[in-house]
Each structure stands twice: as C-alpha cells, then as structure tokens.
Simulated assay, not measured.
Amino acid sequence: MSKVFIVSKRQIQLFIVVAVLIVFTGVYLSWDGSKEVDGQPSEPRIFQIVTVEYKSQTADGKEHEMYRWDPGQIVVQKDELTELHISGVSGASHPFVIEGLGIKGEVLKGKTTVVRFTAKKEGTYPILCLTHTDMRHGGPMVGYITVD
C-alpha cells in the first residue's frame, strides 16, 4: 500500500515564504557591518605653529630681539600622520630643519609652510631655525616635537 501526499498550492506558497524567511534570517545574523581599516588615518592631524618675535630694551637703551616657534612643543603619536602649518608672522625668513626626521624647509613672513610626516620612532625632535641659532642672532629659535 502506497501513501500519496497531496500538496496544495497554498502549502507550496507557505513553504517558499518560510524558506525565504530562513535565508534572510541567516544572512542578517551573519552580516558583519564593520569595515576593515589599514591602520593609517586618511586625514592628518594638523598643528598650527607661528613664528613669534619678542623685543626688549635694556636699561642702557640696547634693544634685544628673540624669536621662537609658538607653541614651543607639540606631542604626536608614533605612526600618526601629522601635518604642521607653520605661519611666518615675525621675521622675514626662517629656514629650518627638524633633526631626526630628515625634514627641512623655510618659513617666510606672511606665508604658511606645510610639512607632512609620519614619525616612526618615539623620541623628541628639535625644530631648529638656521637663522636664529644663538643669542647674537635673536635665538636660539628652537621648538620640539615629542613622539609618544
């Protein structure tokens, strides 16, 4: 004796709807909305630095000028994409080097020099103005980049 199953059109439609719901539920539960990143930010961290001049007069009338970077120290993270926007506010020209990072450039009065780098080693790196190196030349004009 054989058994015969009769399947109605309505049962087939219900089976299809249940199967589709099961598939969508499986896809939804396994969906991972996170994105893989490469560890490097796409936008740099920007620091604004300006050249500053201080003038003073001694009791005997002698005038002294001192130059500095302001702020005098910034802190960045190792492997962080960094951008310095150095604006020339005081002094005609400030050629500079950033020791240890292999960077050199020049800041002119009224202009902004942009320096982009990624520091690979922790430490403190001086920004040295090559014009204002000692007291006789209105310096030392030195700032520091600390890499943590």
Rank of each mutant, 00 (worst) to 15 (best):
residue 42 S to A: 12
residue 65 E to D: 09
residue 80 E to I: 01
residue 60 D to M: 08
residue 85 H to Y: 05
residue 7 V to Q: 04
residue 55 K to A: 12
residue 44 P to E: 00
residue 140 P to W: 00
residue 144 Y to F: 11
residue 13 Q to M: 15
residue 115 V to N: 02
residue 16 I to Y: 05
residue 64 H to V: 15
residue 84 L to S: 07
residue 140 P to L: 06
residue 59 A to D: 15
residue 18 V to P: 02
residue 12 I to N: 09
residue 72 G to A: 11
residue 36 E to C: 10
residue 16 I to H: 07
residue 126 P to F: 00
residue 92 A to S: 12
residue 31 W to N: 12
residue 129 C to N: 01
residue 88 G to I: 01
residue 48 Q to K: 10
residue 84 L to G: 04
residue 65 E to W: 05
residue 81 L to S: 11
residue 36 E to L: 14
residue 50 V to E: 13
residue 137 H to Q: 14
residue 76 V to R: 00
residue 2 S to W: 05
residue 75 V to Q: 12
residue 23 V to S: 09
residue 128 L to Y: 01
residue 29 L to K: 11
residue 111 K to C: 07
residue 15 F to M: 14
residue 142 V to A: 10
residue 144 Y to Q: 10
residue 56 S to P: 06
residue 106 E to M: 12
residue 47 F to H: 08
residue 138 G to H: 02
residue 61 G to E: 09
residue 31 W to S: 14
residue 142 V to L: 06
residue 82 T to K: 02
residue 57 Q to R: 13
residue 90 S to V: 03
residue 124 T to L: 06
residue 52 V to D: 10
residue 66 M to F: 13
residue 1 M to P: 14
residue 107 V to F: 03
residue 82 T to D: 09
residue 92 A to R: 10
residue 63 E to K: 15
residue 32 D to A: 10
residue 5 F to Q: 11
residue 4 V to G: 08
residue 14 L to T: 10
residue 108 L to A: 09
residue 66 M to A: 15
residue 145 I to Q: 03
residue 139 G to F: 05
residue 22 I to H: 00
residue 126 P to D: 06
residue 76 V to I: 14
residue 40 Q to L: 14
residue 112 T to A: 08
residue 100 G to K: 03
residue 104 K to F: 09
residue 25 T to E: 10
residue 120 K to C: 07
residue 107 V to M: 04
residue 24 F to Y: 06
residue 15 F to C: 11
residue 102 G to Y: 00
residue 87 S to L: 15
residue 35 K to C: 12
residue 142 V to H: 00
residue 138 G to C: 03
residue 27 V to M: 13
residue 74 I to C: 05
residue 23 V to C: 10
residue 50 V to W: 02
residue 51 T to P: 04
residue 74 I to W: 00
residue 148 D to W: 05
residue 103 I to F: 03
residue 13 Q to L: 15
residue 119 A to P: 06
residue 139 G to Q: 08
residue 137 H to W: 08
residue 141 M to H: 08
residue 132 H to Q: 04
residue 146 T to V: 14
residue 36 E to M: 10
residue 62 K to N: 09
residue 147 V to D: 03
residue 77 Q to F: 07
residue 132 H to T: 07
residue 126 P to G: 06
residue 44 P to S: 04
residue 51 T to K: 03
residue 36 E to H: 11
residue 27 V to N: 07
residue 36 E to K: 12
residue 7 V to G: 07
residue 47 F to N: 04
residue 69 W to T: 01
residue 38 D to K: 01
residue 48 Q to L: 13
residue 128 L to P: 01
residue 115 V to P: 02
residue 5 F to W: 06
residue 43 E to N: 06
residue 35 K to W: 02
residue 42 S to W: 00
residue 148 D to V: 10
residue 96 F to W: 01
residue 79 D to Q: 11
residue 115 V to R: 02
residue 144 Y to D: 11
residue 139 G to W: 01
residue 41 P to I: 05
residue 74 I to S: 06
residue 127 I to H: 01
residue 78 K to E: 11
residue 121 K to F: 09
residue 119 A to Y: 00
residue 3 K to A: 09
residue 52 V to K: 07
residue 79 D to E: 11
residue 89 V to N: 13
residue 24 F to H: 01
residue 41 P to R: 13
residue 141 M to A: 13
residue 48 Q to D: 15
residue 103 I to H: 03
residue 48 Q to G: 08
residue 77 Q to G: 13
residue 100 G to V: 12
residue 77 Q to Y: 07
residue 55 K to V: 13
